[in-house]
């Protein structure tokens, strides 16, 4: 769709400690229905949202991480992780639930500039 806007969702917060990650994901899923150009950026503690193997039984909270795998079904395939943030947390691409594109800070910054709407929660 040519008149689609570029939406970027910037995730900088870890899951469970606060609700932002979960409610951000809910917006992303809705945005998919609007035929916009959607991308997700994971910076800082936001990269923890994508960590494989989340077990939430002990905190009696719903594990929402499987929803990241569902993004593909909604044609949301642009998931960007900032390399420096990933490295600083001892994580590698193999730790993530879903395939991502790893970008340097500079590449991430450039991508942000190109967006029409940047939503961060």
């Amino acid at each position: 769709m040519s008149d689609a806007k570029k939406f970027m969702f910037v995730n900088r917060k870890a899951p469970y400690g606060t609700i932002y990650a979960l409610e951000s994901l809910e917006v992303v899923l809705i945005t998919a229905a609007f035929d916009q150009d959607v991308s997700l950026a994971f910076l800082d503690d936001g990269v923890y949202q994508l960590k494989k193997g989340q077990q939430t039984k002990g905190i009696e909270t719903k594990n929402f991480s499987p929803a990241y795998r569902a993004l593909e079904d909604y044609d949301i395939e642009k998931l960007y992780v900032e390399k420096e943030a990933m490295d600083a947390r001892g994580l590698t691409e193999d730790d993530f639930l879903v395939p991502v594109t790893v970008l340097s800070r500079a590449e991430m910054g450039k991508l942000m500039d190109e967006q029409d709407v940047v939503l961060s929660f």
Binding site: K5, F7, E26, V27, I30, T31, A33, F34, Q36, D116, V117, L119, S120, F121
Partner: peptide, 20 residues
């Protein structure tokens, strides 16, 4: 209303500013 209203604001508005 639903979250679609937020997405619609992103589509229709010239700028969206978030406070959080």
């Amino acid at each position: 209303s639903g979250l679609g209203q937020l997405v619609e604001a992103g589509i229709k508005c010239d700028r969206v500013v978030t406070f959080g």
